[in-house]
Design a protein around this nucleic acid. Sequence first.
DNA 1: AACGATCACAACCGCCACGTG
DNA 2: ACACGTGGCGGTTGTGATCGT
Length: 203
Amino acid sequence: MGRPPCCHKVGIKKGPWTPEEDIILVSYIQEHGPGNWRSVPTNTGLTRCSKSCRLRWTNYLRPGIKRGNFTPHEEGIIIHLQSLLGNRWATIASYLPQRTDNDIKNYWNTHLKKKIKKHEAAADGFEMTCGTSSICLDNMEARKQDIATLRLPSGIAYAEAKQGMEDDQPPLSFLEKWLFDESSAQVDGLMYLPADRCSNSML
DNA sequence: AACGATCACAACCGCCACGTG
DNA sequence: ACACGTGGCGGTTGTGATCGT
């Protein structure tokens, strides 16, 4: 049994944020910067818990957030990364800086899951659909091999962790290269691979 | 036009990792 | 080594919007 959540405190407001609250939060963060969320409700007078403030900022108010439709390219990246990393939305979001983890998660749950299910059904299980090209399959196999040869529970996760430890940078290079090199056009073309199969084959 | 079903997404909840004393 | 506080993450829920009948 853990601590009661901060939002259980009496007098804490829940539900949708009003424009007024947004303004207060944004102007406070503009002045003080994000962080030290605990002090935000106290200093702003907002009757929201710190967690709620942080979430509102990171998922909605933060500058540079791209809202609205996902491009086919973004969609492809998400599908790829999900198949490789599983539901590690925060990690996936780090490859799409303009999108939030919540956004990606929502998009996955509402759109991509269905889409992939449909494709799986159409492909009768394991057949990956990538137009009619066999190059796609070759690429995928090669990439799966890349990861498999790392001899790790999760090649990508390891590469990330390793790199993250070494230079404290977003763990891009390994996956970035892997993902965005010559096959990026394939990504645009959406390679649907059954997540469970792919993950299993590599883990 | 009314109503129920479905969709889309913002927000919440519970848990975990990590830092600090 | 341990307890506690905080931030972060992923799963889930709530609700308004849209669609179909």
